[in-house]
Design a protein around this nucleic acid. Sequence first.
RNA 1: GGGCUCAUAGCUCAGUUGGUUAGAGCACCGUGUUGAUAACGCGGGGGUCGGUGGUUCGAGUCCACCUGGGCCCA
Length: 929
Amino acid sequence: MNQANELKDTLNLPQTNFPMRANAVEREPERLKHWEEIELYDLVQKKNASGDTFVLHDGPPFTNGDVHVGTALNKTLKDSILRYKAARGYRTPYIPGWDCHGLPIEHKVTKKLRKEKADLDALSVRKSCAEFSASFIETQRSQFKRLGVLADWSREYRTMHPSYEAEILRTFASFVDQGLVYRSKKPVYWSIPCRTALAEAEIEYQDHVSPSVFVRFKIIDEDHESYVVIWTTTPWTLPANLAIAVHPREHYIEIKHGGKSYWVAEKLADSLIDTLDLAGATKGARKAGSDLCHWKTQHPFIDRLSPILTAEYVTMESGTGCVHIAPGHGLDDYLTGKEHGLDVYCPLSDSGCYEDDGMIPSELVGVSVLEKATGCPANDEVIRILESTSSLLAKQSHHHQYPHCWRSKTPVVFRAMDQWFVALDKDELRSRCIDAIEDVSFTPDWGRNRIRGFLESRPDWCISRQRSWGVPIPVFYDEEGEPLLSTELINFLANRIEKEGTDAWFSLSEEELLKGFDLPSEWKGKTLTKGTDTLDVWIDSGCSHRSVLKNLDDLVWPADLYLEGSDQHRGWFQSSLWTGMIAYDHAPYKRILTHGFVVDGDGRKISKSDGKPQTADSYIKKYGADVLRLWVCSEDFRRDIPLSDEILGQVVRSYRTLRNTLKFQLGTLHDFDPNNHLVPVEDLDLIDRWALFKTAELIEDVTRAFDAYEIHKAVQLINRFCSGVLSSTYHDVIKDRLYTLHAGDPKRRSSQTAIYLIFDSLVRLLGPLTPFTADEGWSFLQSGESFSTDPLLLQSWPQAHPSWLDSEIVADAEIILKLKESHINESLENLRSEKKIGQSLDAEVEIRFPSTETIAEVLSRRSLDLAEFFIVSSVVLIADDNEPKITVSAKHASGIRCPRSWRWVPQLVSVEPWGEVSPRCADVLSRNS
RNA sequence: GGGCUCAUAGCUCAGUUGGUUAGAGCACCGUGUUGAUAACGCGGGGGUCGGUGGUUCGAGUCCACCUGGGCCCA
């Protein structure tokens, strides 16, 4: 071994077992296991038992697949905020939940059962759905845990649990009790062969050829024959026509031909003259749609008037600009009809045949609207009638995409059916909701505006679904179809379902269900039939505040925070608000925080077809949880959140920087025992006080960022601190003293004290962001081991002692460092590019300054510290009033280089057995021996 | 088509009530070090703030319109 190597062994170089590489994929699960073993969640709750309560109420993810990366983002934000709040001393009970019911699961399960040719009755489907949901709860729970989500998994809620279902029914009972629930017709997709209502997701669009007909409606009270011309591709809906819609701001024009007038949209007039074969037609009067709307027309073959209305959705792309309205056969028609007080008229039976209601022409009664290979009988018959009444102006074939039933593959029809609704305007409910929103805090603040828009515009809430996988609407019907809906009965059934689950509704007979309930006298003796509808699943999740917050003693209502994606303004935030207002006349939350959606590197939505992984697990398996979490926390989640390989690569690099910073600091503390070596802050060296000052600023800034839910700012602040304050400045300056001074030198202990305090703060700040790495660093600080029995999460949020924040004390350091940045580095760099020096210790610096210069005093006072700040061998100060301002010149240091400290000194001294070193090193070496 | 919303260097983000040559970290290029080395230091290039027009002595920062993206509807 040569002399240099031997001398190197006399230095106090960093030593630590803290691994440079996280190896997160393998090592994070070990930490999770450790946390579970020590029951970390419970320990945290116990520690903060007497603290103020902060309840973040979990929005339940849907249990139909692996955890999506967007869901991981949501849960990460929740976990980070809770970890922060816990560190601040809040009691943070967190009950995770699962949304179990709903069509996507029922659809998937039904598909599977059909393939297996298994039973498709409600109970069988429900059983399979429950199993399906339960299995994904298991999957998702383990994936959330892997992400580091800390929660009370033993008390998780699931919307399919009997006790939860009972609360759904009690919520429904409160609706009924307040007289909000009513029955009305609404059009739904209907599959005639399957005799069932279909949801959007059960619709398949297929190419289809429909007859397209142009039909004239005679305008009444006109002195000559005038007509409005409509166009439709579903002639069979004409018997249910109740109105004609025009666009209020488009213009309509009178086409004169053969002594008759035909009103159509001006923009379509020319093509219609052609289509309707009105050769020689002339154009007459012109009116805005809004001017037509008081007109009344005569239905072509039914004794009924069809008034003209206006509707915004009328387009000028095809047809006549005059739209046939049948409120029982289309959603737009239905809404327009509602707006204008029309009936939801639908003369169709379950089997898709016209019913004899006294209005339907006799030749149509019993005719089926179902399309078969041979055509559609109803269309044919209606067209025949139109021809016979001379109402048909033209007939063509129209190729388009038309909705088909996923099971029978036949075209579906829109058909109005009895549904249950919640009246939202009764007792000022809607305006009370809108008022309640004013008392809720929103992040970002436009959230209030957005939810208000939904509250104002939504029609009455249709809460019935013709599905099996959900909570049944507990209603009975008599022989006439009159419903028995009573608060007492619903509450009675809720108690029963709490014990037996909602399957009881499907498996028990009416008699068994009603056993023990005292029916109102007018219902006694009637034959009752239970309903088959289920409740809209938004009621399920919408009463979680009731089922969870109200029912668990240690939680509070309303919640302090709801935190979900911005799509929930329309969804969960809204449904929870309605149920909260109806049952308790108060919003169930104090604050709503929303995040955007994960998009790709180009800002476009991520879709399965891109082939890029979308599950959280696929990222965790590659990067580990901390990197994924750091990505989440680096992004401004209020807008769209981009995710790409490039972005993750950047996160990985900043993670490595963090990790390396921790590793270096731990290394410098290898011989530091805080119990014996800690130096009082007041006695710390200037540079160390400066570093503590910057740390105190960091703590303040990061705390402010967390309190404002601007987590990405916290990450940016920490990144900048690690590179700007620590790596390039503080660590760089103190390396010399840490390495070369005697282990117990006061200057060295001073810096170690600061590093110890900084590390302690830094690791606490990182706790909510990268909990695995932060806990690992904390353990190493405590014990030099990977795991500690006193984990980081049980520590408080860092707090700078007031003594750290003495800006007067550190003012000198700020001035010196500024000079280094503005003058010293530049002259050293010049010297380096001239190949005169390599490392900065090879240089000496001369500073000339006029005594009037403001920093003259500082430089003089700190003359002995300057070489260390600048990391050069020596600094010469020359007060020179001939200089107009400060000038810095650097040159190669004179003297001889100490092989131990690498500083250039006037002369070396000899120390056995190491040979010649600088006097300072000689002193250290002799004290070591 | 409608409601809400977003748009600053290659990437992630700062830019306070409109005011001097628009900032940071990362990346990139050059370079030093080899005693933080699958590290670290120093130096440098790079944006006119999505576009157009307006208000103003002056706009990334206010207004209008347009383009593109997102969420929710239709």
